[in-house]
């Protein structure tokens, strides 16, 4: 499953970023950060095409030798990035989409929390466990 899950604020700073502990966390930070380039490119391209019925799922942002980086953007321009291992070939587009949907739902719950100040790093345990569920190899 996912090796790294990140939620990035509208202003492009990370609200939440978590990667599998076995691997170099820094590398994922770089990867996710770089992927924002493509996210922005896609958002602006989509914006030109159809402003209303926008697809939140941005698809594969870019592949690297080892990872595939997928993007998703909410209507409030909060970005989700999921990095999966390239060798994990069982993951299809649909699975990735459903992961993003789950992530979005959980994120919405976080935002609904009156004690959460939008823009703060996400520290919700529920959100954390949702992400953990995505990162375990089952599912």
């Amino acid at each position: 499953m996912a090796v790294c899950v990140a939620v990035i604020a509208k202003e492009n700073y990370p609200l939440y970023i978590r990667s599998v502990p076995t691997q170099n966390e820094l590398k994922f930070h770089y990867t996710v950060h770089t992927s924002l380039d493509v996210v922005e490119e896609k958002i602006s391209a989509v914006g030109k095409a159809m402003a209303d019925q926008r697809e939140l799922y941005l698809g594969l942002l870019y592949p690297t030798e080892d990872y595939k980086v997928y993007g998703y953007v909410t209507n409030s321009k909060v970005k989700f990035v999921i990095v999966v291992d390239s060798s994990n070939t069982s993951l299809r587009d649909n699975e990735i989409r459903s992961m993003f949907r789950k992530l979005h739902n959980s994120f919405t719950d976080v935002m609904c929390n009156p004690f959460y100040n939008p823009g703060d790093p996400i520290q919700s345990k529920v959100f954390d466990s949702t992400v953990s569920a995505m990162m375990v190899p089952s599912c």
Partner: peptide
């Protein structure tokens, strides 16, 4: 990185 607040990088 500073501008965008990515602490680890």
């Amino acid at each position: 990185y500073t501008a965008e607040g990515w602490s680890l990088p």
